[in-house]
Design a binder for these strands. Structure first.
Lengths: 116, 116
DNA sequence: CTCCTTTATCGTAATTTTACGATAAAAGGG
DNA sequence: CCCTTTTATCGTAAAATTACGATAAAGGAG
């Protein structure tokens, strides 16, 4: 990304959300999150096995997820144990839920806005 | 992406969600969505002006958002009027809200899972 | 201490994404 | 019909991402 000037006009919260979405935007990382949610907690090796990708590749993906605040890694002996980062997920859920609050409510359709 | 075999083990809904997240994962597109939510509806040219990117670039981003089902474009004379796609946003919100239902609830912390 | 297991980081090749200018298509005004 | 406005698509260059093997670091077993 060649430095988008537009980005600087975002609040810290918006930037955090954007960072999370970018991390989740990769299918492998999306899948890892699902796996972690299902397994509660597990070791890097388990995720490697699940994804069938190279260990170094998975480690890189985990780093992205960690830096986005979506997961936590705790060193457990020689291994590292990963699990969902509750606060991060809570933030993500809240932001998405609050996003576009007026438009797109639960109602079937919006009033015909007649575009332009 | 070099064809990740893992992807095929996803349900249609999961794939749709992954596609949306990928579209939103780009900061420019994320910003466009915010802009559209704020403006309700507007023409391509307005978005071009907002982003300060080339018209062809914006058109490409809009295509990605359209194909992800996040926005709608309606031809309005020589121009195209874009607006949020209500059903898509509703789907996104519901999926995210339902995601990771057990872990990361509103409670302050999870029970100490003791990792591994 | 030495070996084994596990993971992170580094360097690099391949792929994908992004951005741009140029061009085409479509609609309306005069 | 010709011109202007608006947008989409195409081709291409630059940048970022992704994946891999090799290597290093760190902890436990014996």
């Amino acid at each position: 990304m060649k430095e988008v000037p537009l980005i600087h006009e975002m609040t810290a919260e918006e930037q955090r959300l954007a960072r999370m979405l970018k991390a989740l935007g990769n299918p492998v990382r999306f899948r890892i999150m699902q796996f972690l949610a299902h397994r509660q907690a597990c070791i890097t090796g388990d995720i490697v096995e699940f994804t069938t990708l190279a260990q170094s590749t998975v480690s890189q993906h985990l780093k992205v997820l960690r830096e986005a605040g979506l997961i936590e890694g705790e060193i457990e002996g020689p291994a590292t144990c990963y699990c969902i980062h509750p606060e991060g997920i809570r933030f993500l859920k809240e932001q998405i839920a609050r996003w576009l609050p007026d438009c797109c409510s639960s109602e079937a359709e919006r009033p015909p806005v007649d575009c332009c």
